[in-house]
Simulated scan of single mutants.
Amino acid sequence: MITTDKNQSASVIFILLGFSDYPDLKVPLFLLFLTIYMVTVMGNLGMIVIIRINPKLHTPMYFFLSHLSFVDFCYSTGVTPKLLENLVVEDRTISFEACLTQFFFTAGFVVIETFLLAVMAYDRFMAIYKPLLYTVSMSQKLCAFLVAAAYSWGILSSLIFTYTLIILSFCGTKVINNFLCEYTVILSASCSDKHFSEIIFFIVSNIDALCTLFVILTSYICIFVTIMKMHSGSGRRKAFSTCASHLTAVTIFYGTILFLYCVPNSKSSWLMVRVTSVFYPVVIPMLNPLIYSLRNKDVKETLKKLMNIEASTQ
């Protein structure tokens, strides 16, 4: 029985339609996504380098931010190259194994990012609630543990999701009205009973979402209460400014997810679904380093120094 399922799965071919029904937009979309990807790579890798070379940035907040940049880079790299390829080639097929591999990595990085955002919210709470004990409370060991926990749970969740797909049998050719391999699309191509897989996916994904949202909302409620108790107006503004970048990133990230799942499943909404799907794995990884760098004086100063050094060498 296992051999039969493997043979069936090996013969499965997915066709990623992407934006093929808009042939006139192929070249503009290719140039747009290529530009976005280049900015994403330079922005996230640049953020990691800046944090590493500037001793002022060797703090818990920037430690978490460097890992967020790494995850964004990997997440975008797992999706964008295939999107660019499908815009220039006629053969948009992808094998079952390649589709499953793309899903495994993208799902893992999504879960890791959600938990990193929750960890960063907790970090901002500790910085505002106990500023004098901040360096003691957020020790290097604790920061390393929190990051390791985020990666471990992300990998575990992705393994669980992927396993619930591998145990199914697949057959035939499946047309995907999108540009990436998503769980529901792969699941819909199955020829066997999907009830168990759907239940496991529902439970694990909701645990991931609810746990991270609980930490983020609780942290920001406590932050807001703490800021409101401050008597100094300048202290309030400074406290709000330290949270502004992270809160913006969280709002865009979860806002996009909520919007994507709230769009009705109809033919007229497919374009909106694809546009939102592009924004989620392609645009957000580009926005995060811009959001954190534009509102951060230390990052700006480091960038200016690097530019001055480069100019002097020339």
Results as ranks from 00 to 15, higher is better:
Lys6Ala: 15
Asn7Ala: 12
Ser11His: 15
Val12Ser: 12
Ile15Phe: 09
Ile15Met: 07
Leu16Lys: 15
Leu17Thr: 15
Pro23Trp: 14
Pro23Met: 13
Pro23Asn: 14
Pro23Glu: 14
Leu31Gly: 12
Tyr37Leu: 09
Val41Tyr: 08
Val41Pro: 05
Met42Tyr: 10
Ile48Trp: 02
Ile48Met: 00
Lys56Phe: 01
His58Thr: 04
Pro60Asp: 00
Tyr62Arg: 06
Phe63Gln: 04
Thr80Met: 04
Leu83Phe: 05
Asn86Trp: 11
Leu100His: 11
Thr101Asn: 15
Gln102Asp: 15
Phe104Thr: 13
Gly108Ser: 13
Ile112Val: 11
Ala118Trp: 11
Met126Pro: 03
Lys130Leu: 03
Tyr134Gln: 00
Ser139Phe: 03
Gln140Ile: 04
Gln140Thr: 03
Gln140Pro: 00
Leu142Gln: 02
Ala150Lys: 06
Trp153Phe: 07
Ser158Pro: 06
Thr162Ser: 09
Ile167Ser: 06
Leu168Asn: 05
Asn178Asp: 12
Cys181Asp: 04
Cys181Thr: 04
Tyr183Met: 07
Thr184His: 10
Ile186Phe: 00
Phe196Ser: 02
Ser197Leu: 01
Phe201Trp: 09
Ile203Gln: 11
Ser205Lys: 08
Ser205Pro: 05
Asn206Asp: 05
Asp208Leu: 07
Thr212Asp: 13
Ile216Ala: 01
Thr218Phe: 08
Thr218Met: 05
Ile221Lys: 10
Val225Asp: 14
Lys229Asn: 14
Gly235Lys: 00
Ala239Leu: 03
Thr242Tyr: 00
Ala244Pro: 02
Thr251Tyr: 02
Thr256Glu: 12
Ser269Met: 15
Met272Ser: 06
Val273Gln: 02
Thr276Glu: 09
Ile284Pro: 09
Ile291Thr: 13
Val299Lys: 13
Leu303Asp: 07
Glu310Cys: 12
Thr313Ser: 12
Gln314Met: 11
